[in-house]
């Protein structure tokens, strides 16, 4: 797996192709905005019935990242479920799968704006986590050295003969925002409000994909 290593507020971090963040010194894997159960929620309110496979697709990726990194610690950075109570409605297979992933690992669910935390599942439930120099929470605040999610940042880059658009990490001196990890998630261009106003002028976007690559936000279209 090709990753992109970078320094953030004194921590050496690694951006994974999937949109996960790995902190080798701490053996920590961070993923944000899993949005499990999105298709179920949409159909419950009378909307379209999307292919009901996003939970297993997301779990498959998560399992692969945990195996590849050997993470002993996992933080789900909020909006792990698409709505309150969906954790209880999770199919039994998927629930067992999550339990299997949790076995032997320190697992933390951070509260999101869609879910206050999947209380029916094991693991620790917290509003935020401090670890070394960094603080982890769902929505960015004014604090420095903060790792957050919520906005589903996406980057668009003009290439020879076309453009390419991918979910991305956003990082500047104070702040790191993770892309959405879930299978059924759209994105917000980092050139649009509020993302464009949140980051410093020298912010970098790290594009996800087979080889994560850093691009100055100023160079994006």
């Amino acid at each position: 797996m090709k990753t992109h290593g970078f320094d953030f507020c004194g921590a050496r971090l690694s951006a994974l192709p999937s949109g996960g963040l790995f902190w080798p010194d701490q053996g920590l894997l961070v993923v944000s905005d899993l949005h499990f159960g999105k298709s179920a929620r949409l159909s419950a309110v009378g909307g379209a019935q999307l292919p009901p496979y996003e939970t297993r697709e997301t779990l498959l990726r998560l399992e692969a990242d945990i195996e590849a990194t050997g993470a002993g610690r996992v933080i789900c950075l909020g909006d792990s479920f698409d709505a309150v109570g969906l954790d209880a409605a999770l199919p039994e297979d998927d629930r067992l799968w999550i339990t299997r992933l949790q076995a032997g690992r320190d697992w933390t669910w951070i509260e999101g704006n869609h879910d206050p935390g999947p209380v029916s599942l094991g693991g620790t439930h917290l509003a935020e986590v401090r670890l070394g120099p960094l603080v982890f929470r769902h929505i960015a605040s004014d604090a420095a050295a903060e790792v957050s999610g919520h906005y589903h940042p996406k980057a668009r880059l003009a290439l020879r003969g076309g453009a390419l658009s991918r979910p991305c990490f956003l990082v500047d001196a104070r702040r790191l925002i993770l892309p959405a990890y879930g299978a059924y998630t759209g994105g917000l261009s980092c050139k649009r409000a509020p993302l464009c106003d949140m980051m410093g002028p020298d912010a970098l976007a790290i594009l996800t994909g087979p080889q994560p690559v850093p691009v100055p936000v100023a160079r994006l279209t």
């Binding site: 999307l50 292919p51 496979y53 996003e54 297993r56 697709e57 589903h152 299978a183 059924y184 998630t185 759209g186 994105g187 917000l188 261009s189 649009r192």
Partner: peptide
């Protein structure tokens, strides 16, 4: 709402992987 909407390509890829005869 646009920014939060996933692209139809994701649905296509998901069906291709899990339910190709849909």
């Amino acid at each position: 709402g646009r920014q939060a909407t996933m692209s139809s390509d994701i649905l296509y890829d998901t069906l291709l992987k899990y339910d190709p005869d849909h």
